[in-house]
Amino acid sequence: MQIFVKTATGKTITLEVEPSDTIENVKAKIQDKEGIPPDQQRLAFAGKQLEDGRTLSDYNIQKESTLHLALR
């Protein structure tokens, strides 16, 4: 499925993911596309910060959802 990640600079990244993917996997995909190390990424959805060990389906993130990326 496709999801979107909006960066602090307003850029939107499109990612191909599975509901079973962990947040860690998603951060690795962002690193592949943007070169941002996962340990510098903070992802949020619906106002909640997402934890590495959880999956997209844990957070009820569905196709075409938009996550927000902040850098630490």
Score class of each variant (00 low, 15 high):
residue 58 D to P: 01
residue 67 L to R: 01
residue 19 P to M: 08
residue 32 D to W: 08
residue 64 E to L: 14
residue 71 L to H: 13
residue 20 S to R: 11
residue 17 V to Q: 02
residue 14 T to P: 10
residue 15 L to F: 07
residue 44 A to G: 11
residue 24 E to I: 07
residue 37 P to H: 09
residue 31 Q to A: 15
residue 49 Q to G: 10
residue 9 T to K: 06
residue 12 T to D: 07
residue 2 Q to M: 13
residue 7 T to W: 07
residue 48 K to S: 15
residue 43 L to C: 01
residue 46 A to V: 14
residue 63 K to L: 11
residue 17 V to W: 02
residue 3 I to P: 00
residue 36 I to E: 03
residue 19 P to G: 09
residue 33 K to Y: 14
residue 3 I to N: 00
residue 69 L to P: 01
residue 61 I to P: 01
residue 24 E to N: 07
residue 31 Q to E: 11
residue 10 G to M: 09
residue 53 G to E: 12
residue 47 G to E: 14
residue 25 N to I: 06
residue 53 G to N: 13
residue 66 T to M: 12
residue 65 S to Y: 14
residue 70 A to Q: 05
residue 55 T to C: 03
residue 40 Q to T: 15
residue 12 T to L: 12
residue 57 S to C: 03
residue 62 Q to A: 15
residue 5 V to D: 00
residue 2 Q to C: 04
residue 31 Q to L: 13
residue 64 E to Q: 13
residue 50 L to S: 01
residue 38 P to L: 15
residue 38 P to N: 13
residue 67 L to S: 01
residue 69 L to W: 02
residue 3 I to S: 00
residue 52 D to A: 08
residue 27 K to T: 02
residue 18 E to M: 05
residue 72 R to P: 14
residue 71 L to P: 06
residue 49 Q to V: 13
residue 54 R to H: 13
residue 29 K to I: 08
residue 21 D to R: 02
residue 71 L to Y: 12
residue 52 D to M: 06
residue 36 I to R: 02
residue 51 E to Y: 07
residue 33 K to W: 08
residue 17 V to H: 03
residue 8 A to E: 08
residue 70 A to P: 02
residue 20 S to P: 03
residue 24 E to H: 09
residue 54 R to Y: 11
residue 42 R to F: 11
residue 14 T to W: 09
residue 18 E to A: 06
residue 13 I to C: 02
residue 38 P to F: 09
residue 40 Q to E: 12
residue 39 D to Y: 08
residue 27 K to Y: 06
residue 72 R to C: 04
residue 1 M to R: 02
residue 46 A to K: 07
residue 25 N to A: 09
residue 40 Q to I: 05
residue 49 Q to C: 04
residue 64 E to I: 04
residue 53 G to C: 04
residue 50 L to F: 02
residue 8 A to R: 07
residue 24 E to Y: 08
residue 67 L to M: 06
residue 43 L to K: 00
residue 11 K to L: 07
residue 53 G to Q: 09
residue 31 Q to H: 11
residue 59 Y to S: 03
residue 15 L to G: 00
residue 65 S to D: 12
residue 45 F to V: 08
residue 45 F to H: 07
residue 69 L to M: 10
residue 23 I to A: 03
residue 3 I to K: 00
residue 60 N to M: 15
residue 44 A to M: 15
residue 48 K to W: 10
residue 15 L to S: 00
residue 19 P to R: 14
residue 33 K to F: 14
residue 14 T to V: 15
residue 62 Q to P: 14
residue 59 Y to Q: 05
residue 59 Y to W: 03
residue 66 T to V: 13
residue 53 G to W: 11
residue 33 K to C: 03
residue 60 N to V: 06
residue 4 F to G: 03
residue 25 N to V: 11
residue 33 K to N: 11
residue 27 K to G: 01
residue 12 T to N: 07
residue 17 V to A: 06
residue 7 T to C: 03
residue 34 E to K: 04
residue 9 T to G: 06
residue 55 T to H: 07
residue 64 E to T: 06
residue 65 S to V: 14
residue 26 V to L: 11
residue 1 M to N: 04
residue 1 M to P: 02
residue 60 N to F: 09
residue 38 P to A: 10
residue 53 G to P: 15
residue 26 V to K: 00
residue 43 L to E: 00
residue 29 K to G: 05
residue 26 V to W: 00
residue 66 T to I: 14
residue 65 S to L: 08
residue 38 P to W: 13
residue 67 L to D: 01
residue 47 G to P: 01
residue 44 A to H: 15
residue 40 Q to V: 15
residue 70 A to R: 05
residue 21 D to V: 06
residue 13 I to G: 01
residue 10 G to H: 14
residue 41 Q to E: 01
residue 47 G to A: 08
residue 46 A to P: 02
residue 3 I to A: 01
residue 71 L to F: 06
residue 32 D to Q: 14
residue 63 K to Y: 11
residue 61 I to R: 00
residue 58 D to L: 05
residue 26 V to R: 00
residue 49 Q to R: 07
residue 69 L to R: 01
residue 24 E to G: 08
residue 9 T to S: 09
residue 38 P to Y: 10
residue 1 M to E: 02
residue 56 L to V: 05
residue 42 R to D: 14
residue 4 F to C: 03
residue 72 R to F: 12
residue 28 A to I: 10
residue 28 A to L: 12
residue 55 T to V: 11
residue 23 I to C: 02
residue 55 T to W: 05
residue 24 E to V: 13
residue 27 K to N: 02
residue 52 D to S: 12
residue 57 S to T: 11
residue 43 L to H: 01
residue 70 A to D: 14
residue 64 E to K: 06
residue 65 S to C: 03
residue 18 E to I: 10
residue 28 A to R: 11
residue 52 D to I: 05
residue 22 T to Y: 08
residue 55 T to N: 06
residue 13 I to W: 08
residue 50 L to P: 01
residue 18 E to T: 13
residue 65 S to E: 13
residue 8 A to W: 10
residue 37 P to V: 12
residue 19 P to I: 10
residue 10 G to D: 14
residue 24 E to M: 10
residue 47 G to I: 02
residue 59 Y to I: 02
residue 42 R to H: 14
residue 66 T to W: 13
residue 62 Q to C: 03
residue 21 D to I: 08
residue 58 D to S: 10
residue 53 G to D: 15
residue 53 G to M: 10
residue 46 A to M: 13
residue 52 D to W: 05
residue 52 D to F: 05
residue 21 D to T: 09
residue 52 D to E: 10
residue 40 Q to W: 06
residue 5 V to K: 00
residue 69 L to G: 02
residue 31 Q to P: 01
residue 72 R to I: 13
residue 56 L to W: 02
residue 59 Y to G: 01
residue 19 P to N: 11
residue 51 E to K: 05
residue 3 I to D: 00
residue 61 I to Q: 01
residue 43 L to T: 01
residue 59 Y to A: 04
residue 52 D to H: 08
residue 1 M to K: 02
residue 1 M to C: 03
residue 21 D to G: 05
residue 39 D to H: 06
residue 41 Q to S: 04
residue 35 G to T: 06
residue 46 A to E: 15
residue 31 Q to V: 13
residue 29 K to N: 05
residue 9 T to L: 08
residue 50 L to R: 00
residue 9 T to E: 07
residue 6 K to S: 06
residue 12 T to Q: 06
residue 72 R to Q: 15
residue 40 Q to C: 03
residue 39 D to L: 07
residue 13 I to M: 06
residue 28 A to W: 15
residue 44 A to D: 14
residue 47 G to M: 03
residue 39 D to S: 13
residue 3 I to G: 00
residue 59 Y to E: 04
residue 71 L to K: 13
residue 33 K to I: 11
residue 9 T to R: 13
residue 15 L to W: 01
residue 5 V to E: 00
residue 37 P to G: 14
residue 50 L to M: 10
residue 61 I to T: 02
residue 6 K to E: 12
residue 51 E to C: 04
residue 38 P to Q: 08
residue 11 K to S: 13
residue 29 K to W: 06
residue 44 A to F: 07
residue 42 R to I: 14
residue 35 G to R: 09
residue 71 L to I: 06
residue 13 I to V: 07
residue 22 T to C: 03
